[in-house]
Design a protein around this nucleic acid. Structure first.
Length: 335
DNA sequence: GCCACCGGTGGC
DNA sequence: GCCACCGGTGGC
């Protein structure tokens, strides 16, 4: 990972429908994994050092094409998945909430961001960022102000490049690369990232929640809302403070590809597209890093109650899904 | 009735 | 192929 010095990571957890929103804010972090599941370890300082290993996402960057910003990437993964694992919480920098651990009875559980991680530009190790707000702050200026372990001393005074990485992309979580340089939302506003279930036509949706509680889902709506509420504009809020860009999943098949309009033979397969499970795709094609899907791991991860298989490993229960495919994941930690 | 989520597509 | 946008609707 060379250039990519900085990448940002997001951990995804699953939440349930209504709940997601609330969960969002919490995203905090630290997850550790335990034997099979996750656990938290607790060390106050760094999360499990041992537990998490370094991740290398570099390659994944595909797209940003222009920027090689590969740098700033976020990875999302779903801890919950694993099950049971539990995530524990330790407060300090990393506090976790075991929310996902408990069984949601709800029928729908969707993945949600569980943690944010940024890669040190010097040692390339991943550092968990304690809050969504801090993460957004770092992300906003990641190009001009590369993140380093030294920066992390703001919330972890003892941290240095000598410490092991905080997280490793291994277990079957869902990882995604975030876009760099996204402005922080205006004061009083919140930017929500909702991860869709596997097999959807899109990976995620971004919403902005205005101070009034109104949710806005596109720049058109933002613009309209600001015009209707001049007070925000008078306060300096502009559309440049909003961005609906979403992270990209490393799992290549997570998002269902749009079917070609003309696929022939419908039958043949029936398989045509839609029906196909993503899983079938070849991981190989994808980037190296891509994490792998859940394969085997999945079992472990799933914990108790639910988890059905689905693709994402993460999701524990998901009634929802379309069929998931399974993909395999692999782990890659490099550092 | 509301709204979170999903699907679809026009435009690039 | 990707993404911004928004319509539809299941579930509450």
């Amino acid at each position: 990972m060379q250039s990519s010095s900085m990448k940002l990571t997001l951990e995804v957890e699953r939440g349930k429908n209504g709940i997601n929103d609330s969960t969002f804010p919490d995203l905090t972090l630290g997850v550790k994994r335990e034997e099979n599941g996750f656990t938290a370890s607790g060390s106050p300082d760094h999360l499990g050092d041992s537990i998490w290993k370094p991740i290398d996402l570099t390659s994944s960057e595909e797209d940003s094409g222009s920027n090689d910003d590969a740098q700033k990437q976020l990875v999302i993964y779903d801890p919950a998945v694993n099950g049971s694992g539990e995530i524990e919480a330790a407060f300090d920098p990393y506090e976790y909430r075991p929310r996902n651990t408990f069984p949601f009875n709800s029928s729908r559980v969707l993945p949600a961001v569980g943690a944010f991680t940024v890669q040190c530009a010097n040692c390339f190790k991943w550092r968990l960022v304690p809050t969504k707000e801090k993460y957004e702050e770092i992300r906003e200026h990641i190009s001009e102000q590369p993140f380093s372990c030294e920066t992390a001393r703001e919330w972890r005074p003892e941290i240095s490049c000598e410490d092991p990485t905080d997280i490793c992309q291994d277990d079957g979580r869902l990882w995604a690369i975030d876009k760099p340089n996204i402005a922080q939302p205006p004061p009083g506003w919140e930017r929500l990232l909702r991860i869709r279930g596997e097999g959807s036509t899109k990976f995620a949706d971004v919403y902005y929640v205005a101070p009034s509680g109104k949710r806005l889902r596109s720049m058109v709506e933002i613009q309209r809302y600001l015009l209707q509420h001049p007070e925000y504009m008078e306060a300096g809020v502009t559309t440049s403070q909003f961005s609906f860009q979403t992270p990209k999943p490393l799992q290549e098949n997570y998002v269902r590809k749009r079917a070609p309009a003309r696929l022939t033979t419908p039958c043949d397969g029936g398989s045509n597209m839609v029906g196909r499970l993503p899983g079938f795709l070849q991981p190989s094609d994808v980037d190296p890093l891509a994490w792998a899907g859940p394969d085997e791991n999945r079992d472990e991860r799933r914990v108790g109650p639910s988890v059905p298989t689905h693709l994402i490993e993460a999701s524990p229960e998901e009634p929802i899904q379309h069929r998931p495919a399974k993909k395999k994941k692999k782990e890659f930690c490099d550092i």
